[in-house]
Simulated scan of single mutants.
Amino acid sequence: MATIQITLSDEEKRQVDELFKKLGMTTSGAIKVFLSQSIQNQGLPFTPHVRDHSHQQAIYPVIGKDGQLIIPNDAPEEVKDWVNNG
C-alpha cells in the first residue's frame, strides 16, 4: 500500500472537501477516481487547456419595469441564449 501526499492551502482543502461531499465522496476517493481514470485512459482523464480571459467583459444587466432581466445588446450571444432559454 502506498501513500501520496499533496499540499493545499486550508481554503483549497475546505473547498474540495465541500465539493466532493456534495458529490457523495471524500477528497481521497475523488483522487482515487482521478488516478484510476488516468490509468484507464493512459493519460489525463480530461483535456487540459488554458482559457484566454483577456477578451472577457463585464455584463451589466438591468431589471425592466415588468421585472424581466434585460441583457445589453453587446453581451455575447451565448449569454443571451442562456438567459432566455436557461
Rank of each mutant, 00 (worst) to 15 (best):
M1I: 09
T3F: 08
I4F: 09
I6K: 06
L8D: 10
L8Q: 13
S9E: 14
D10M: 13
E11T: 12
E11C: 03
K13G: 09
Q15F: 07
V16D: 10
D17K: 14
D17S: 14
D17F: 10
D17Q: 14
E18A: 13
L19E: 14
K21G: 03
K22D: 07
T26P: 15
T27V: 03
G29D: 05
V33E: 11
F34D: 04
F34R: 05
F34H: 06
F34I: 11
S36L: 11
S36E: 13
Q37S: 12
I39A: 06
I39R: 10
N41G: 02
Q42Y: 01
Q42N: 10
G43V: 02
L44G: 01
P45R: 07
T47L: 09
H49D: 13
H49N: 13
V50H: 05
R51D: 00
D52W: 01
D52Y: 02
Q56E: 14
A58N: 06
A58M: 10
G64R: 11
K65V: 11
K65R: 12
D66N: 12
D66K: 08
I70A: 01
I71W: 03
E77L: 08
E77Q: 12
E77D: 12
E78Q: 06
E78V: 09
V79L: 06
K80Y: 03
K80M: 04
N85L: 03
N85Q: 05
